[in-house]
Design a protein around this nucleic acid. Structure first.
Lengths: 214, 214
DNA sequence: TCGGTTAGATACATTCGTGTATCTAAAGAC
DNA sequence: GTCTTTAGATACACGAATGTATCTAACCGA
């Protein structure tokens, strides 16, 4: 046999090709990080050659930026709606744990110096943006149910679950455990919410019932 | 003038030389990060040549590891003792903000793939170790003063100030503001401490007096 | 003062990624 | 069916960094 692999003999064009290129670039990002990514590797993964890439993106940062934006654009999550703030947060954080690669890629790019090309604002936007949106949906629903009053709970407290989640992810670079999620929600976040609700004379202690009795 | 710079005509040896090399390596780490660091640049910064470096460290990761360990070994901080938990935390976090470069270097190295050479455990040790020690000194003192009972305050709460600090640093890569420190200590940490102290019937609300009246 | 060690300078081969140029043949428009 | 576009293959020049080899002279101990 000297026909090791039959040539596909089919050429992709337009959007189909471009999607394949960007998907390959994203996968390389996951695998090798920003610094490790090369045009060579991306081309090979996409079963094409470097010139095809260079015709579209002049250099690595342009390619990576395009790949990131492309990936985030098809990032649609339906935010869980379990009927309680606590349940929603549990689900949301588990969901974020499954999607942790995205965040690792962004953090990696951030450190590799992408932020010198991309505006620091945009990096931050991609980094915290989606999670902040998810979080605010959940919090708004909870407010409608009367579980929380966003006017009395400080912003830093509101963003706390995902801030701690992001930190944990950075420290371990692997799946975030259920134990961690439980601790953040029940030992830290909900007690604080109650603290601020009580201080305002509202619905005192409605969450603290979830704190493990020890 | 063709004597642009007079040759030092003095050769360093032993520890003096080695310190200069590692100091140069650390500075390059701060400046260019793990990926950007080159033997060339380190040699030039140390006013010597590459072979001098190669005689000691076979490759970049070895050099960087040595530089990190060397730097951390001379990392001595006297932990503030202001007489109150709140005061100590404020000082400690400001102090950590001044020393933020160290942490950025470690985070950078972590992402650049140093963790494949260094054990993940050691990375984490260097990353969170020193701050955890500082923090526990402050907490222990506070316990001796009766301000906190470390048996009733969950560990995740105890480590919260520096966890949030680390996260903030990662997100901004610049100085951590006093506003942030105040928010973490007064809006998040101390209320939680009070919450757990109250639940235990101890010294109720002794910290909450610090929460801004709004 | 002599002699072994090694700092520091210089040169070199090598490797790896970049970015461009050139050619062919497949895809799609008319 | 013809024509224009461009995917995909291949080759090349270039630069940057690596790691080694070689030489000299400064250093330090005996």
């Amino acid at each position: 046999m000297d026909l090791e692999k039959s040539p596909p003999q089919q050429r992709r064009r337009g959007e189909e090709l471009e999607d394949a290129l960007l998907e390959a670039a994203w996968q390389e990002l996951e695998l090798s990080g920003f610094t490790g990514l090369t045009f060579d590797a991306v081309a090979e993964r996409a079963h094409t050659s470097r010139p095809v890439l260079y015709r579209r993106w002049p250099d690595k940062t342009a390619l990576v930026l395009a790949a990131i934006r492309w990936h985030y654009d098809r990032d649609a999550v339906d935010v869980p709606d379990t009927g309680s703030l606590r349940g929603d947060l549990y689900e949301l954080l588990r969901l974020a744990s499954d999607r942790r690669v995205e965040m690792v890629v962004m953090l990696n790019a951030q450190f590799a110096g992408l932020f010198s090309e991309m505006s620091l604002g945009e990096v931050r936007e991609r980094l915290v943006g989606p999670r902040t949106v998810w979080s605010s949906i959940v919090l708004t629903r909870a407010q409608e149910r009367g579980e929380i009053d966003l006017r009395v709970v400080p912003e830093r407290v509101q963003s706390l679950p995902f801030d701690l989640f992001r930190h944990e992810l950075l420290m371990t670079l692997t799946t975030v455990s259920d134990e961690f999620i439980a601790s953040v929600v029940d030992e830290i976040f909900l007690p604080l919410v109650d603290h601020y609700m009580e201080a305002n004379g509202d619905l005192a202690g409605q969450h603290t019932r979830y704190v493990p009795a020890d």
